[in-house]
Structures are given as C-alpha cells and as structure tokens.
C-alpha cells in the first residue's frame, strides 16, 4: 500500500470511530443548543471525506522520509524516552533525569568521541541545576519518588 493510501485509510478509520462515538453523546442540556455531537461529526466528516479522497487519488508511490536504519534509530530514542518517563513515575526526578541526559547525550554524540566524563559532568550539573531552579528558586513541582 502506498504512503498516501495508508494515510487515507488511517484518516477514514479515525473518522468512523469518532462518528460512532459521537452518535452516543447525549443531547444538549441547554434549550436551543445544537448539542455536543455536531462538532465531532464535522471532524469525522472531514476525516472520512479526505480519507476517501486520499484512498482514491493516493496511488502514486512516494519516497519515505525513513530508511530502515532511521526507523531503528527512531524506535531506540522513543524507547529511551518512554523508559525515562516510566522511571520518573516511580523514582522521581533526580536519578532518571541524570541517567536520561547521559544516555541521550551519548546517543547524539555518537561518532564525535566526546569523553564519557564530560557527558557525565554535563548530566549531573544540569540535573542539579534544574532541580535547584525549579524546586528552590521557582517553587515549582517536580516528579517525586514514589518508592522510598
């Protein structure tokens, strides 16, 4: 399936799902109001029409912006960030942030051969700086440790 056809298909399916969900919404509580379902129906309508349009016209094959290698890299960085968020939900801000800064910096630096201790110093200093800035100076909340 070409890129445009699969995009059209996704839009079509999304449109149908929205429409089905919207059909179950209750009528408005206000007299004279057209109700909460009209706008979801409009979004769904646009998605269904444009999705169909792309299914019909999208037969031309187009180059993807991704190669096999870049898809693997994308999955890798996505997994790292997901792990970071998961870890932060349990361990709080400090440790996961320091770790993710180190890992991401190593990933981005790759062939540049940056000394590991430089990256480690960067990760520790930035983590502490953000912590002090948010926690002590600005009085903003940061994720907290849920385990111990």
């Amino acid at each position: 399936m070409t890129k445009n056809r699969s995009t059209g298909l996704i839009a079509l399916v999304l449109g149908v799902v929205i429409a089905v969900q919207a059909a179950q919404l209750p009528p408005s509580t206000m007299a004279g109001d057209i109700g909460p379902a009209v706008f979801p129906f409009i979004s769904a309508g646009i998605l269904i029409l444009c999705g169909l349009g792309m299914l019909i016209t999208g037969g031309v094959k187009e180059a993807s912006i991704f190669t096999k290698e870049s898809l693997v890299r994308l999955a890798k960085i996505f997994a790292v960030v997901l792990l970071y968020i998961l870890a932060m939900s349990y361990l709080g801000f400090l440790i996961p942030t320091c770790a993710v800064l180190y890992v991401l910096s190593v990933m981005f630096a790759e062939e540049d051969h940056i000394a590991w201790w430089k990256i480690l110093v960067f990760a520790i200093v930035l983590t502490i700086a953000i912590y002090l800035l948010f926690h002590n100076v600005l009085n903003l909340k940061l994720p907290t440790n849920q385990l111990f």
Binding site: L25, I42, S43, A44, I46, L47, C50
Partner: peptide, 26 residues
C-alpha cells in the same frame, strides 16, 4: 486533502474533555 486531515485531527483533539456550553463529557 492532507491539510484538511491535519485540521480535522486538531479540531478533534479540542473536543476531548468537557464540551463548551452543555458541559457534556466527550
């Protein structure tokens, strides 16, 4: 067509949560 799909998705995301006026959960 893609521009419209983008706009429709953006519109849909604003519909998540309490609806204006009637305060229906969507």
């Amino acid at each position: 067509l893609k521009g419209f799909i983008g706009a429709a998705i953006g519109l849909f995301i604003t519909q998540i949560g309490y609806a204006p006026i009637s305060a229906t959960r969507r």
